[in-house]
Design a binder for these strands. Structure first.
Lengths: 237, 237
DNA sequence: CAGTGGTCTAGACCACTCA
DNA sequence: GAGTGGTCTAGACCACTGG
């Protein structure tokens, strides 16, 4: 598993900054040193510091603006939510979901959850939410997160619409990517009860694993979408 | 629409190379000049030529290997097909689809097709395919492409499994990205007839627009997937 | 062994931002 | 006007590839 060759200098610089973000020394919105200063601090040239910052920018971890500087990226409800929430109208515009209901439960983890989240995950929070768009309830989400990573989550109820922005803000856990599997399923009785859909209607079910900056799986999520008026939209490159 | 600032030097270099690929002067698999030679040819430094090549590599247009050189990327049936064909087994492994049937028809374009493919698209080829995986017919694909871009396509029947690799090879049209919209639908009588699925069963329907290196929409595709054993798999970053 | 891309440095000029 | 990132140059050394 180990790589014989050491990491390039620029990568060590960028990983050092990631580590500072993960351990909380750098918080979202904070200004980073300039390329020249960063290079001096780390004992590398400006070009190398520049490359590290460019790497972080490409990964969406920092934001750079000419004349202004480099700041740790903030996951706002806008940027964050719409990046990981893929339902769009027919014209491609973003859908504005509202939270219709929310329940949070603390319980023992299942074997499958421990397999994905790590064996130290004895307890989890199970968060069930229903979202409506344009007055129609068309999304059910079942999220599972380790209690260890999100202590005292029940005290924060009601949770904000955009979970990932909240996690970064309140727990310092930043989502890097989400791996998803989509399948078509029939709405069951519970779906018909919770959403504006008839039992037996086709839904898209999305199973997601959300991965943070430390490459840990920090959330398991299963979502069910009614796709009558909105579609799940992606771009393959 | 126009940008006041001129393109950076490195971008002009990379766009020049893209143009050479588009017009056929550079074909897939061909070796590019080294960074130093390219810089000399274009009157820029090695660093700038390097940046242009890195840009092309990031966009998947060329492949670079230390010690070997830079070549125009080849869309092989493996690399290409599995990039744009997202069905995966439960363990994440790639599914091996077989072509179960194929029909090609030349006809006038519809108004909707002209809106997407360009008003000069008077005629299109409509390609309908059924794919099977593990002996089960679980994919229907309806592709529409302009006759102008793919002349004499009927002479190439049967078309290979991986369409995009074939297009690049036979017509010099390289797919850069594909924008997709996913919805859950019920299998109709034609689906039940063509695939191993019962009428009314839930399917995922994917509507795709494929875009080439010149930013033209060159294909409209509608696919229907049975997701009992396989799931549509993506990664959001 | 010659040639390639990967990394790294040092320095220059420019465009942009903000006080 | 001082400071930032964006671009560009010129040159160095290294690791890898292939004959």
């Amino acid at each position: 598993m180990d790589d014989m060759t050491p990491l390039p200098l620029w990568r060590r610089v960028s990983e050092d900054i990631v580590a500072r973000i993960v351990n909380g020394a750098l918080r979202p919105g904070v200004m980073l040193p300039s390329e020249i200063d960063l290079g001096r601090e780390m004992g590398v040239s400006q070009g190398t510091a520049r490359r590290a910052l460019r790497d972080l920018e490409r990964r969406g971890i920092v934001e750079r603006r000419q004349g202004r500087g480099t700041v740790v990226a903030i996951r706002t409800p806008e940027t964050d939510h719409f990046h990981f929430f893929r339902l769009r109208h027919a014209d491609g515009s973003e859908a504005q979901p509202m939270l219709a209901s929310e329940t949070l439960q603390r319980r023992r983890s299942t074997a499958a959850e421990r397999a994905a989240l790590g064996s130290e995950t004895k307890y989890v929070y199970a968060l069930d939410r229903i979202r409506s768009i344009g007055g129609k309830r068309i999304v059910r989400e079942f999220s599972v997160v380790p209690v260890l990573l999100f202590p005292a989550l029940e005290d924060r109820i009601p949770l904000p619409n955009a979970l990932y922005a909240f996690w970064q803000d309140a727990y310092g856990i930043a989502i890097q990517k989400a791996d998803e599997r989509l399948r078509a399923v029939r709405a069951d009785a519970a779906d018909a009860d919770a959403m504006d859909v008839a039992e037996g209607d086709p839904l898209i079910e999305v199973t997601r694993q959300a991965v943070d900056l430390s490459d840990r799986i920090v959330e398991l999520r299963r979502s069910r979408y009614v796709t009558d008026d909105l579609a799940y939209t992606i771009s393959l490159r």
